[in-house]
Each structure stands twice: as C-alpha cells, then as structure tokens.
C-alpha cells in the first residue's frame, strides 16, 4: 500500500493546534512511517505553489485549523479542499470560529480604529490603515482582504469531519490518525476525536443538588477541588459541552470554558446553556431571580467564547 499523503494548514489560528500535533511526541515517527507530509507550513518547507501543482485529490487527508478571517484563508481552504480527499475542520477555530470568532462582537471598522489609531502605544497621526493594494517603486504590494466577519471552515468549503478542541488533545489526534490509516472512515459530517456525552457526564467531581443562590467568578472564591463547580456558583460550561478532552480545565480546578462545543443535535451551545443555567437559579421571586442572573456579568462572552461564528446569530448585530 502506498503511503498516505497528509497535509495541515493554519488559517486564523494561534499555532496551538500545530503544537498539539507535535504533542503526539514519539508517535510522530510512526506517522512518518505510514504517511508523507506533503504540506505543513510550520514544520515542513513546502509552499503554496507545491500544493497548486498537486493533482486534485492527491492529498488523502487535510487537517485544517483556524477560522477564516481573510481572503487568503478562504483561498487556501478552497485550494486544499480541491486537492484533498478528506477535509477535517481541526480544532475549535475551524469548527466554530474559536477565540478569533470573538471578534464578531465588534465591527471591522472599530477593530481597525482601535488597533491602528486609538491604542496608546500607536503613533499614527496621519491615520494610515493597511491597504489591500499599495504601490511602491518596485511594484504593487498586496494584502489579503480582512473580512467583515470571522467565519468557520464549513462556511467556505465542504467539510468531511469535525474535530473540536482548543487544541484537540494529543491522545485524540493519535486515535484519529490511526482510524484514518486503517481506512475505516466514519460517516461524512461526523465529529471525531471526541465523545457525544457532555463534560458533566464524565466529570468526577461530587454533585449533589444543583441550586445556585449566587454566581461567582473564579477569582472571587477559594475553589473546592472536589465539588461540582457549577454548584459552587461558577459558570462551568460542562452541562452543554461535548466531552473528549479528559476534563482538563476542571482538573486544573477551573470551570470548563466550552471549547469542544455542543453535543450532536444541539444547534446553539449558548442557548442551551441559558436553559441549563436558568433552571438552577434558586429564587423565590422574579426579582430575586433577576438579581441572581445579574451576577453573571458577561453571559454572551462566556457562553459563546469559542463558538460565536458557528452560533445561530453568528455575530453581534
């Protein structure tokens, strides 16, 4: 059997997904035995032109991480889609927008004004902004177009599988690589490298009765390392978040932040959490309920931390 051809790319990403792939450690050598890496900008020096020269479908599997922030990300996503048999949205950003997706709370013009004019280390009295085309003596310089919205990978190309996580864990990556190498591919559209239970289902903390009189933020209290975090009044996303990470954040004694997104069948993680959270508010009167709810100071930012572009509303209106 000929070796698998693997590719990986980062669009609007931080590089953490690349590090996660490196975190399979010594198994990277095993990967090299069964697969040729034909494109992976952070580690292997193939260029866009090499990819353009590949035949359509030449790449067996492309692990695409990052959201789509600009025209270059979209262009390369389309190129890699054309050259790849299987396209995987790898990591929370590609799946649902991730942390870069928080930019959808702001308008593009406001982002530019803040970054290039207002921020207090910036010296820009002439109000220079980056331009997609700029003439210099040697020719014209081009920049990719910065889009109005951050998008998910599936907004611009057909995606075969979704692998959530910020970043996905090394164990899950290795498990998925083995499945790919075996050829026993799951049905199209499946979420891989995770489970369809919730974080709460897998969490070993002691749960008693979920009733909350007061919500706290983590810095305000000494957090009990045995007890359910939600019951301590912390807005833990565990009830509405897909399991598979091995309960990493809760094991560091902090609430789940929701990076694996919702389980199958749930369209909007934040809406689901509104429902879950409201049901545990322990109030006798609407006024008391109002007061308790007002202690959740940034609900939209907390509930859509990793998934605003992939949510129903997609951005702030």
């Amino acid at each position: 059997m000929s070796k698998l051809k693997l590719a990986s790319y980062w669009a609007a990403a931080c590089g953490g997904c690349d590090v996660a792939i490196l975190d399979i450690n010594e198994k990277i050598v095993d990967v090299a035995n069964v697969a040729d890496i034909v494109f992976w900008p952070i580690a292997v020096d193939f260029k866009y032109s090499d990819v353009e020269a590949y035949a359509d479908g030449y790449i067996d599997v492309c692990l695409f991480h990052g959201a789509i922030r600009n025209s270059e990300g979209e262009h390369i996503a389309k190129l890699l889609r054309q050259k790849s048999k299987v396209m995987v949205a790898f990591g929370s950003c590609a799946v649902a927008g991730g942390i870069p997706g928080l930019a959808n709370f702001k308008r593009r013009e406001d982002i530019f004004e803040r970054v290039y004019i207002e921020s207090n280390s910036t010296q820009n009295p002439e109000r220079v902004f980056p331009q997609t085309k700029f003439a210099v003596p040697e020719g014209e310089l081009e920049l990719p177009e910065f889009y109005k919205d951050v998008k998910c990978l599936a907004d611009v190309v057909d995606v075969d599988y979704f692998m959530p996580g910020c970043p996905p864990t090394a164990d899950q990556i290795w498990a998925v690589v083995q499945v790919i190498a075996s050829g026993a591919l799951p049905p199209k559209g499946a979420f891989v490298g995770c489970s369809n239970k919730t974080m709460c289902d897998e969490c070993k903390r002691v749960k008693t009765e979920k009733k909350v009189k007061k919500f706290y933020r983590p810095y305000e209290i000494m957090i009990d390392s045995e007890k359910c975090l939600l019951e301590q009044g912390l807005t833990c996303m565990g009830p509405v978040t897909r399991a598979g990470c091995g309960n990493q954040c809760t094991s560091a004694n902090l609430p789940c932040r929701g990076c694996y997104g919702p389980v199958d069948g749930v369209i909007d993680q934040g809406a689901k959490y509104i429902s879950a959270l409201a049901s545990i508010v322990d109030a006798d009167t609407p006024e008391e309920a109002d007061r308790i709810i007002s202690q959740i100071v940034d609900p939209a930012g907390t509930f859509y931390r990793y998934g605003l572009p992939g949510s129903l509303l997609r951005r702030a209106k």
């Binding site: 509104i274 959270l277 409201a278 609407p286 609900p299 939209a300 509303l313 702030a316």
Partner: peptide
C-alpha cells in the same frame, strides 16, 4: 421566565434590541 431574563441579557450584548 428566568430563561427569558437571561436570554434577554445575552441578546442585548449581541446587539439585538
């Protein structure tokens, strides 16, 4: 009702009047 209160808060942050 509580859901509604919390949802209104979220929608307000998301710019839905």
């Amino acid at each position: 009702m509580r859901r509604y209160q919390l949802m209104k808060k979220v929608l307000e942050q998301l710019g839905v009047e």
